[in-house]
Amino acid sequence: MEQILQQYQSVASTKVMTWFHVGKINDFPENGGACIKYKAKQIAVYNFTRKSKWYACQNVCPHKMEMVLSRGMIGDLSGTPKVACPLHKKTFSLENGENLNGDDYKIATYPVKIENENVYIGFTD
């Protein structure tokens, strides 16, 4: 369990070593998410059209360790963009990965770059 989680550490946009191409913008549904694979990692990528922003985070929900967050609904809580896990509706900030229900969970977030309709996620490895 720890092992799965340890693979995922938030990446600051200043620390990116690799910008990995994951698809075209229309591969991702508007105001929703989809999952991509980078090496052994599963990353959820969200096309937050309403805010004209993109977000990325680990696909694994830290509550029960299932690869499901990309399938969750997105939205906001007092302005903070968030995703709700489809299994038990725990919600996480897409900005800093914090759990918004006051639980002691956190998810890793990754920077997203859009260039000419192409979507890239930033990694340090």
Partner: peptide, 10 residues
């Protein structure tokens, strides 16, 4: 207002 959530969307 805002951008919706898992309560109002469904």
């Amino acid at each position: 207002k805002g951008n919706g959530c898992e309560t109002c969307k469904p």
